[in-house]
Each structure stands twice: as structure tokens, then as C-alpha cells.
Design a protein around this nucleic acid. Structure first.
Lengths: 141, 141
DNA sequence: GCCATTTATATTGCGCGCAATCTATTTGTG
DNA sequence: CACAAATAGATTGCGCGCAATATAAATGGC
């Protein structure tokens, strides 16, 4: 049963996080997955979709429509690469860049809602990432 | 950033778990949320939908169609309560009961894929549940 | 240089997950 | 008893998340 219980703990914690993020992200006009994509682009943009997918563990079936919505919201621009016509490069617009400032209040609010110390959260994060990487390795056999 | 990183760790671990569960649950004809409902019913059935929702942190918008699919698959039966006509009671069919045996191999397989010791998983589960409950409390203000 | 293979992205279909809304009961208050 | 409020569940709409498939461009072996 323990595997089941742990998985449910992860599953239900993910939903709980979503509920905390939602009112904060509503003000930015983003969903949580869209916020993740923006976080990735704020770190490095002008990149192919593949690159975003690898960083977030998402595939084109998820990203293509999501990126279209971000483009409709004028936060990003998608352009076919010249060197490799298969790739679509994703770049932030000025509005997309500007949103980074508006989003600055999100992480502290999350930290406060978690009610944990930095040390606890860091340890938890480390353990989760190790578990995730182990699970992903197990899928690849 | 730490709050963001932790949430992403939870989010991506949930997806990784899903990828590990999928081939195991495909053999049972269940999705992971359906498996969760079955786990809940194997512990206690003949209960109103509300009861399942509280145990799994899910609402009727999610559960109503999911339960309809489980009923179509002949794993459960839904009947209006006599005492309180607002309630719909969910009971396992004999097939639903029998599936419990077929599902017995799932938890050990998950445990093996996690590559962690029982102690590590128990500690991680405990920390996650504390975090989840804290987050849920923060949403309710 | 040709052609099979690989790679990047797009599309379709299905099942969540949740907000918002609706209906039908039940409960609580006077 | 009447009637407002609360409660249980169903419905609708939207955005993931992913499998399966399709398309088009690049690559590699001969």
C-alpha cells in the first residue's frame, strides 16, 4: 500500500498547490502550466519547443495548443527556424518580458502559504526530484 | 524561487508516477483517478459520492462522469438513497470486488520502480501530507 | 545523390480537474 | 406550516496531459 499512499500524497499535494497558485495566477491571466512555460522562457527564450518540453517534461500535444494561447495573449511569438525548418522558436514579446515583474510576488506568497521553513522545503524538493528521476528512469527500463 | 521549484518538483513527480502506473493500470482497464476511486471503495463502499470526494479531494464535476464510466464498465452501481433523495450511493459490483485481487500486484511494482527504501518513502509521505494539509488550510484562509 | 530513418511539430481524441451554474431535496427558522 | 438557506449531485465549458497518428524537414548509410 505504501507506494499507493505516497503517490496519492504527491497527487493531492499537486492539486493543493494548484489551488494556492490559482488566485495569484488569475491576476496574471495565466494557468499554472502556462506560468511554468513563462518561468522557463524568463530564464532562456528564443528556444525551440523541444527545449521547453525537455525542461518541463511536456510533449508537443500539450505545448502546441498552450503556446498558441500564449501567443494569442501576446506574451510570446512563434517563428519557424531558418537553419532547421522543423523547429519553431519561441520568443517573449515585450509584454511577455514585462509580465516577469508582475509575477514577482508569486513565489513569496507560495512560500508563506506552505508554512514551512526554507530548510524543510529544500530537503523535500531534493527528495522529490530524486524520486521523480528514479521513476522516469524506471519507465525507460 | 524555492516555492516555485518545490511545486514543480511535486507537479513533475506526479506526472512521473502516472507514467509508471499507466501500463499497470491499463491491464486493469483503469485510469489513475479511477484506480483511486476503486481503492477508496475497496476500503469502504455503499457510500455517497460526497464521501468519495472528501477522501480524494475531488468534486462532483470530476466524479460524476468518472463514476458513470466505472458504471458502464460494470465495476460499480449508483443508486439514489432512500433516506436522502439528494444522495447517490456508490456500491461495488461483484466484478468491482473481484478487480481488487487483480490489482494486488500494483503496489509492489510501484515500490520497486521508486527505488527507495520503505523508510525514505514513509518520511516523504509524511512531509508531503503535512505540506498538503497546510496548503489546503491556507486556501481556506 | 538517393532513400530509409530520425527528428520537430501539429492534430485528434479521451479523461481528468475545476469553476460556474442548475436542479432537486432537506434543513433550519420563525 | 411556510419559506429561505444549505446541501448533494449533475451539467457545461475550458485547459491541460498524453497516446496515437500525420506531416514535413533533416540526417545517415550506401
Amino acid at each position: 500500500m505504501l507506494g499507493n499512499q505516497l503517490c496519492f500524497a504527491v497527487y493531492s499535494t499537486a492539486h493543493a498547490f494548484n489551488r494556492v497558485y490559482k488566485p495569484l495566477l488569475d491576476r496574471l491571466g495565466l494557468t499554472y502550466p502556462q506560468y511554468l512555460v513563462m518561468l522557463a522562457l524568463w530564464e532562456r527564450d528564443g528556444v525551440p519547443i523541444k527545449d521547453i518540453g525537455e525542461r518541463l517534461f511536456l510533449d508537443s500535444g500539450t505545448l502546441t495548443p498552450l503556446l498558441k494561447r500564449l501567443e494569442t495573449a501576446h506574451l510570446i511569438k512563434r517563428t519557424r527556424s531558418r537553419e532547421d525548418e522543423r523547429q519553431v522558436l519561441v520568443a517573449l514579446t515585450s509584454q511577455g518580458q514585462a509580465l516577469k515583474e508582475k509575477a514577482r510576488g508569486v513565489p513569496p506568497a507560495i512560500l508563506a502559504a506552505s508554512g514551512c521553513s526554507i530548510g524543510e522545503l529544500t530537503a523535500l524538493k531534493k527528495n522529490l526530484i530524486a524520486l521523480r528521476d528514479q521513476l522516469n528512469a524506471a519507465v525507460g527500463e
